[in-house]
């Protein structure tokens, strides 16, 4: 199990808990005191990250594709800070 905590500048705290298998994410939980609208999208967002390689470009593309397909508003975090936290996990 790998973890990371990151305080987004001018934003909120992101906590990541993830497991990797063969270089890609097999499970991930994103918690913290941020806001995401609609809230229920967090689970689909976590689901969308499964199987993704832990690499900046791949993660960013996944998240952007997710946001495009399931309109989601971030408040206190954004895609770059989320990707940054995922990359920090160890």
């Amino acid at each position: 199990m790998q973890r990371a905590i990151y305080k987004v500048p001018d934003g909120k705290l992101i906590k990541i808990l993830l497991e990797e298998e063969g270089g890609s994410i097999s499970s991930i939980q994103i918690t913290g005191d941020f806001f995401i609208y609609p809230e229920e999208n967090i689970e689909q967002l976590e689901h969308a990250l499964r199987g993704c390689t832990r690499e900046e470009k791949a993660l960013t593309e996944r998240l952007e594709k997710f946001q495009h397909e399931s309109p989601t508003e971030f408040f206190g975090l954004d895609i770059p800070s989320l990707v940054h936290t995922i990359l920090l996990a160890q």
């Binding site: 918690t31 005191d33 941020f34 806001f35 995401i36 809230e39």
Partner: peptide, 9 residues
């Protein structure tokens, strides 16, 4: 706690 927080954490 906030919606996205982990209760036990």
């Amino acid at each position: 706690i906030g919606y996205f927080q982990s209760l036990e954490e």
